[in-house]
């Protein structure tokens, strides 16, 4: 019950911030429409709607890290968390209360991107539903990163690291904007040991109905998600103890 109450507050704080809605929902939609317009004039296979949309949905999830990290860092800096530590809330209440409400927001963001893609010509198939569901582990990874950064950094640092660095890393190393093979070398190697490109490839495979194609990408995504959750719990408990 307390988790639900705490989750409700988390959702309200995130959804009532117009900047969050602008970045979280508006920006990915603008990208889909903009890159589709480019594709219409100068055809590039990477920007075909069936290839572009899975990439944009994964890129959009990087904003979930920013949202959850900013909220947690603000709660720490304003001593709101300190106040809550004197209530009957337990550590799992806090962790689930911060993380759970962001998951439906993330899935809703993905769903809106796919609706926009349908309007731009993506055929309506059941695989779209699966593609949205497969965003769950990717979302979990980004949300956990948010808890990790929000536990360890201040609001200003969160803005720089999650708002600028992570979103750019997700964009460059995911193969959404350009084919990673075109760059090759060390860049491609780095991209391959990070989860972003695997998340995009997994989403593309699911959307295209190629379920054998989700391997090995799904293992990378699940592995990174598990590691991020473990680290997030550790860092959250550490800051809780320090308070």
């Amino acid at each position: 019950m307390r988790i639900l109450i705490f989750s409700g507050r988390t959702a309200k704080e995130i959804l009532r911030d117009p900047l969050n809605l602008g970045f979280g929902l508006g920006f990915p939609l603008v990208l889909i429409f903009l890159l589709s317009a480019i594709q219409a004039n100068i055809p590039v296979s990477l920007f075909e709607i069936g290839s572009l949309t899975p990439g944009i949905t994964v890129f959009g999830l990087s904003f979930m890290t920013l949202f959850s990290a900013t909220l947690l860092a603000k709660d720490r800096e304003s001593a709101f968390l300190q106040r809550l530590y004197t209530t009957p809330l337990s550590a799992p209440d806090f962790i689930f209360g911060y993380a759970l409400p962001v998951l439906p927001i993330a899935l809703a963001q993905g769903a809106v991107c796919y609706v926009a893609a349908i309007l731009l010509g993506l055929p309506v198939t059941l695989t779209i539903l699966y593609a949205v569901l497969f965003l769950c582990p990717v979302s979990l990874f980004f949300i956990a990163l948010g808890l990790l950064f929000g536990s360890a950094l201040g609001v200003k640092q969160v803005g720089g690291i999650c708002g600028a660095l992570l979103t750019n890393l997700t964009a460059w190393l995911s193969g959404v904007w350009f084919d990673l093979d075109l760059v090759g070398g060390i860049f491609r190697k780095i991209a391959n040991v990070l989860p972003f490109v695997h998340a995009v490839e997994m989403e593309r495979a699911v959307l295209n109905g190629d379920f054998s194609g989700i391997f090995p990408h799904v293992w990378w995504v699940l592995g990174y998600a598990a590691a991020a959750v473990a680290l997030a719990v550790y860092f959250f408990l550490r800051q809780m103890k320090r308070q």
């Binding site: 507050r9 704080e13 800096e77 001593a79 709101f80 106040r83 004197t86 009957p88």
Partner: peptide, 17 residues
């Protein structure tokens, strides 16, 4: 904890609520 209330030095409220 059951018997105390704390109003910290910082305002410590949920701003968007």
């Amino acid at each position: 904890k059951k018997s105390i209330g704390v109003s910290p030095q910082e305002t410590a409220i949920a701003p968007n609520l």
